[in-house]
Design a protein around this nucleic acid. Sequence first.
DNA 1: GTGAAAGCGCTAACAT
DNA 2: ATGTTAGCGCTTTCAC
Lengths: 334, 334
Amino acid sequence: MNVNIRTIAEKAKVSVATVSRVINNSVKVKTSTKERVLKVIADLDYEVNAVARSLKLNRTKNIGLITGNIMSTYWSIIARAIHDVAKVHGYNIILCCNDDESPEQEYKYLTVLKSSRVAGIILVPTCRNVSYLQGLIDSGIDIICIDRKIRDLVCETVLIDDEQGAYQGVGYLIGRGYTRIGIINGPSGVHTSDERLKGYCRALYENKLEVDQCLIKSGSWKQESGQELMDDLLNLTKPPDAVFTTNIELALGAILTLKRSGMRIPDDIGMMAFSDYEWTKIIEPPLSVVDFSIESIGQRAIELLLSRIENESTARRNTEIRIKTKLKIRGSTL
Amino acid sequence: MNVNIRTIAEKAKVSVATVSRVINNSVKVKTSTKERVLKVIADLDYEVNAVARSLKLNRTKNIGLITGNIMSTYWSIIARAIHDVAKVHGYNIILCCNDDESPEQEYKYLTVLKSSRVAGIILVPTCRNVSYLQGLIDSGIDIICIDRKIRDLVCETVLIDDEQGAYQGVGYLIGRGYTRIGIINGPSGVHTSDERLKGYCRALYENKLEVDQCLIKSGSWKQESGQELMDDLLNLTKPPDAVFTTNIELALGAILTLKRSGMRIPDDIGMMAFSDYEWTKIIEPPLSVVDFSIESIGQRAIELLLSRIENESTARRNTEIRIKTKLKIRGSTL
DNA sequence: GTGAAAGCGCTAACAT
DNA sequence: ATGTTAGCGCTTTCAC
């Protein structure tokens, strides 16, 4: 027995329109009437039916977030940042995890979110449904991409300065005297991996070091992958004297392998990772990293999105925000 | 220009009722008609408006998850497990983080979720809005509590065997010869902390060791708290010879303090934590823990919820599922 | 097997 | 300042 706007109207002896006005504070309502209505609302514990309101307005207060594996620190920090800002503005987050980078899953999430009339979407794109995405955007759905830039897509995007970050990190290793530097990377073909690899290559190139394909390893973003790829590097005829891993899970796996093989960091091998996390400070030696503000990605993205939503902005913008990186040197590098 | 069920009906020369029947596969529709309708739907890229459907049915396909800080590994694993099962059944997750255990925030989330007609709610309760919660449950909203049992609330609940877990862990420490065992705990008054403390006390008691209040420290669940409380323990006239931390963030903080003070684990001090995580294996020495399947909590909870939702179960059940713990002994204990 | 029509709870244009 | 009413897009009862 749900109490609705009509029940309130009857009890308060006003029309439903007036109740609606009171609820929304839209038009001036005589103070005495307003108070009477509010009293009835309080007495009956009335709450608006958000679904009905959404149907009428053709828009919900929900924001879709299509992200990677929420169990990974990285995505969870971003999700949290988005959640917090959204909350302040009265929006809920619908969480969609697509950790295996599946374009089909992405497509499905997008259609479901569209069908449920979300106010907007923040997306970590697989970069495969480009024309579908452009269609959604052009049809007026507010979408912000994060973490990856899609060439040929007109869409506001927030990402890390991946190339520059890797360049800094690898450049530092070179400066410290390492000459055979391996890289343990995510899947190739993915924006983030490709950009970080570019930075790695540029650092070598500018320092007149040869790029040895044997030293370039790529796999999934997961810890197990870090373990295996580090094994591969160790088994090389000429193994590396330093390794750069492009995320923190990969670093975890790599270090695990190194420990098992009895290699000493940083003497036998130097280690540096892209992205910092809490446990990097308590391991022995503490890990040197390319650091950046992960939450900024989420914050900038949700701010961008909310400004589109609330200003009913419909312009086809192609903004690109790049979060800066900076080195944190600890004990894992000479 | 949104295409709706009426557009489809007109183009397919049928009534809206028939279109609805096709969409929902509800009643038998003549094959030829059905195909004609499906063709139009495909041609026009029609998708049902989930909001309108929800208004009619008075229920959405969204499930509210009110949890702790999603950035903490623990909650993210649970959220992920819930998400995955929900996805298979066609439900979305609305993520609500309440990491500071605020009853007001919890109340607000509950009202918002109710107002947006979620199909059900999975809640990590603050244990403060008990009568309000009972009201919601009795009014027919399906709610599953996780991680904490609320006395006097008739509600299906999934939690860890906290008392037993702590008992096991502390019992093991005692068995290894430690006699002055400190505990770094979460906030007192919270079910989880209290239960784990009980287990700690029981282990001491059954082994004829005195419970020294100086050795019982409680604070927030966060890393910083672990750092500070470990400092306190170290500054005691008679510091502990082993420490049991009741979650993994606290362990991280405690270890950080230990490292800074030059204490050696496990010789100067033994360490054991409640709950395992990946990095526990790469630190030196690897951490001994009381382990349990975190995702099981989420899985059991969402299964319980879905069975209530889909069977339209309205019984006032008081099921209590407890996840079992088991020791993982590594190098941080003698 | 199919259609007509009521109605879910709300907002907003229009009328008074 | 307030009331009347149409209609958002859908499901479902009832009638044929």
